[in-house]
Amino acid sequence: MNMQSHGITPERLSNLKRLEAESIHIIREVAAEFSNPVMLYSIGKDSGVMLHLAMKAFYPSKPPFPLLHVDTTWKFRDMIQFRDDTAKRLGLDLLIYTNPEGVQKNINPFDHGSSVHTHIMKTEALKQALDKYGFDAAFGGARRDEEKSRAKERMFSFRNASHGWDPKNQRPELWNLYNARVAKGESIRAFPLSNWTELDIWQYILTENIPMVPLYLAAMRPVVERDGMLIMVDDDRMKLKPGEIIREKRVRFRTLGCYPLTGAIESDADTLPAIVREMLVARTSERQGRLIDKDESASMEKKKREGYF
């Protein structure tokens, strides 16, 4: 490797190495201190990086915890395919959970709106899954640079027995000494990627060659324009509104979620370097492509208090 000197001791760990080491430390600490941890796997690029780090953290062993995907049944088909392939390729336990009441009541983003859908199929479903398996720690791939209420999030974020987050009463976190003590029913959400920025994530994906869902890359895809966003028609459950026309456009996704709630951007970026290039010059913040955060102001903080990741 070509070491650059900026008047900096070359032996100091580079930014990516330091982030990598910090994340591995956190992942190991959770595995060592909790009796029943789980890694939330949302199939997106951050989850992909987190999983990659978990594989490194325990090599040559496998990570001593399962993956959990909370399936709203509205994820892109490519995501589901990628999820199953990944679990198989790495030989990991994958738990899939869907809120049965939500399915029974046919909760969906079109009839119930993004807010209700997200609450029942994602937030509630997650809580049900954590309770069902009795997990006392759950890894999430959230980053502090994503959104304002994340900036003050802890690496080990304490949740009470009803999964609530109290931003005013967080445990102080000093050095790399994490307090992993919880009473029965309480839990910790652990965020090993807290100090990564979106650029770090892409740099790491590029340098480590981590597989990603193809939806991040531009391709011709059927989309309609709705509420100022380009929504991909991923299956025939999507009902067109009057005046809406399906167009084939060269688009890609900056973040991945439920397809009816995730806006695509028009783009020619069909390789990782092209994405990075596009991202570096883009001004829009990352979650702008997601309907969920637009519904109400300060929505993230509210959701997090209620138990959202």
Binding site: N2, P10, S14, N15
Partner: peptide, 14 residues
């Protein structure tokens, strides 16, 4: 150019 740039960033300090 971007790839080269990114790879050069690998040694970036923190």
């Amino acid at each position: 150019a971007v790839t080269d740039y990114i790879l050069a960033q690998e040694t970036k300090d923190q």
